[in-house]
Computed example of a mutant assay.
Amino acid sequence: MLNAIVRFSLRFRGIVIALAFALLGYGLYSLANAKYDVFPEFAPPLVMIQTEAPGLSPEQVELLVTTPVEIATNGVSGIASLRSGSIQGLSVVTVTFQSGTDLYRARQVVAERLATLAGQLPQGVKSPIMTPLTSSTSTVSGIGLTSERLSQMQLRTIADWTVRLRLLAVPGVANVIVFGGEVKQYQFQFIPERLIKYSLTGDDVLNAARRATGINGAGFIDTGNQRMVLQSEGQSLSPTQLADTVLVHENGANVTLGQVAHVI
């Protein structure tokens, strides 16, 4: 067999040389147009949809949230598989598309389908969102913040508003997940006996807290020469200020947040 190949190559050496040059040219062309990456993408294109449903049990999440999302996305063309998971307060639907599907176009179609769910989900359930695009390699690097002077809350604030934003600005970084530490927040711990005494509900306390921490536009004033923009400054930014927020005014006396709840 080997002798036959050698005889053929010597007899038709012009054809063999021409084929060799053609193969060399095709190799150079393929090398110049080859797609390469440090972490090649080997996973099929997929879209993950998350929906928060505070207060609902897994059965309620499955029936009232996950099923409508699945029905809305099931008609998208190019779907290879559709999986879902329902836990307390959270629904996760994973849509896997066939290999070669344009992922950006698929995400656009899925977003249009999810928009049709507006007003159909139970009250209190947040709108379904698609998670950002991530590589199949998932987490590439982990970074920890430590300090001997700063508290856990201060470190979490730095991680959320400084480190995370700078990492997202780095080319190739798709998502940065922050966990741990203490998230800065204000808490209202109700005193049920006080609420009953003043005939108030939890919604009354929450509405008063939202008004105290909200920012409202004050409009503007037009003069003959200019327009002056008005800025209101009355937002409560500390637990003490929130505790002094007036809930109701009856019989010449005020009932404040601090009287019906512990503000911390």
Rank of each mutant, 00 (worst) to 15 (best):
N3S: 13
Q98K: 02
G14A: 11
T51A: 01
T66V: 11
D160F: 05
E148K: 14
Y26R: 12
N254C: 02
S77E: 01
E41R: 15
F220L: 07
A72T: 03
N175D: 12
G224A: 09
L63S: 08
G55P: 05
Q187H: 01
R13N: 14
S77N: 06
R11D: 09
F97K: 03
P58I: 02
V183D: 13
L90Y: 02
S136R: 06
T51P: 03
L19N: 07
V38I: 10
N207D: 13
Q241C: 00
G78K: 00
P239V: 12
L114M: 15
T67Q: 08
L247I: 09
Q226K: 09
G124R: 07
T223C: 06
P171G: 10
R166H: 11
L24C: 12
Q60P: 04
Q152Y: 06
L167P: 04
E148A: 15
V178S: 07
L117E: 04
S86C: 04
I264P: 01
L90D: 01
A34M: 14
F39V: 12
I158F: 04
P128A: 10
V61L: 10
H249D: 01
A80I: 00
V205E: 04
Y26D: 04
P54N: 11
R113F: 03
S77V: 03
I5K: 05
A218R: 11
L145A: 05
